Structures are given as structure tokens and as C-alpha cells.
Amino acid sequence: MAVRGADILILVNNVVVGGQQSATISESVETVETTNKLTNGFKEFEYGFGEWKISADGIYVTGDAGFTALKNAMRSKTKVTVRIREEGVDVEEGTALVTSRDLEGKYDDSATYSVELQGTGALTAVGA
């Protein structure tokens, strides 16, 4: 069954970041080259270290507790607990640093925000 994008929410310290319109959850892993003289002229690789990050944006809502938590965490350089919720169910969580926050106020449109979260440690299944 397909999941609607509108049904994926980002929570910070157990509070939904209000006004969210989109979120991109990215995971990647480095590779470590293990080529040697016995690999028959082909390079070989193993998995290295992994990382994850989240980019999100939305409509700025005055006094939103989730957005305020992100702003305060970045300014005080404290880590936040991030949860990913799909269709009302918390599915993954991890610890992250808030690495950027933008607030844009165009004269002819709604004020919008964007944030970048850099995961530290693993992103794991909730309840695992």
C-alpha cells in the first residue's frame, strides 16, 4: 500500500514540527576499498560508515513548539531526538544536530521555514 507524503511527519523531542510541507530523509554509506593482488584485476569494496540526515520545510506557524525546539537546540548547540511518523505510527528515531534553519518572509506569500538535521549515531526502528 502506498504511503501519502502528507502522512509522513517529523517530530522533535516528541513534538510535531508544525506547518511541515515536505521532508527528505536521506541515508548513505561510505565504501572501503579492499582491492588486493588476488582480486583478479577488479576492485572490491566493503561497507564503511553510514550516516543519515533530514531536510524539511513548511509554513511558519508562530509559536510552534517543534520549530521553537529546533531553533533553541541549534542556538544552544544541543542534540535533539527525532522521530519519523508514517500514517500516525512512529517508525524510526535517532539523535540529530540542527545544522541550519532558514525563515523566509516574502511580501506576497506565507512565511516559510526550512531546517537541516544531521543524524549522529544510528537511525533505528521505534521499539527496537
Rank of each mutant, 00 (worst) to 15 (best):
M1C: 08
A2M: 10
A2S: 13
R4Q: 14
R4L: 15
R4C: 11
G5N: 12
A6V: 06
D7S: 13
I8L: 14
L9M: 10
I10A: 06
V12G: 00
N13S: 03
N14C: 08
V15C: 06
V15H: 04
V16N: 07
V17Y: 00
G18P: 05
Q20F: 00
Q20P: 05
Q20D: 00
Q21E: 14
S22M: 01
A23W: 00
A23I: 05
A23Q: 02
I25D: 14
I25W: 04
S26I: 12
S26G: 14
E27N: 15
E27G: 14
E27Y: 09
S28N: 14
E30D: 15
T31C: 11
T31W: 13
V32H: 13
V32P: 04
E33K: 11
E33S: 14
T34N: 12
T34F: 06
T35H: 14
T35D: 06
N36A: 14
K37R: 15
T39M: 02
T39N: 09
G41Y: 10
F45A: 13
F45H: 13
Y47H: 13
G48I: 09
F49K: 11
G50A: 11
G50V: 05
E51N: 14
E51M: 09
W52H: 05
W52M: 06
W52P: 03
W52L: 03
S55Q: 12
A56W: 00
D57V: 00
D57L: 01
D57N: 15
D57P: 02
D57Y: 00
G58R: 00
G58F: 01
G58V: 02
I59H: 03
I59T: 10
I59C: 06
T62H: 11
G63L: 03
G63D: 08
D64Q: 02
A65F: 01
A65Y: 01
A65C: 05
G66R: 01
G66F: 02
F67T: 01
F67L: 09
F67I: 00
A69F: 00
A69D: 03
A69Y: 00
L70P: 01
N72T: 05
A73H: 01
M74S: 12
M74D: 04
R75T: 04
T78Q: 14
K79N: 12
V80N: 00
T81L: 09
T81I: 07
V82K: 01
R83E: 10
I84A: 08
R85C: 06
E86P: 06
E86G: 12
E87I: 05
V89G: 12
D90G: 08
V91W: 07
V91E: 10
V91P: 08
E92A: 10
E92M: 10
E93T: 13
G94W: 04
T95M: 09
A96E: 01
L97G: 06
L97Q: 05
L97K: 04
V98F: 02
V98E: 05
T99Q: 10
S100E: 15
R101C: 06
D102F: 04
L103W: 04
L103N: 10
Y107Q: 12
D108Y: 11
D109K: 11
D109A: 15
A111K: 03
T112S: 11
Y113G: 02
Y113R: 02
V115T: 06
E116M: 07
G119H: 01
G119V: 04
T120L: 09
A122F: 04
L123R: 12
T124R: 15
A125T: 13
A125H: 10
V126L: 08
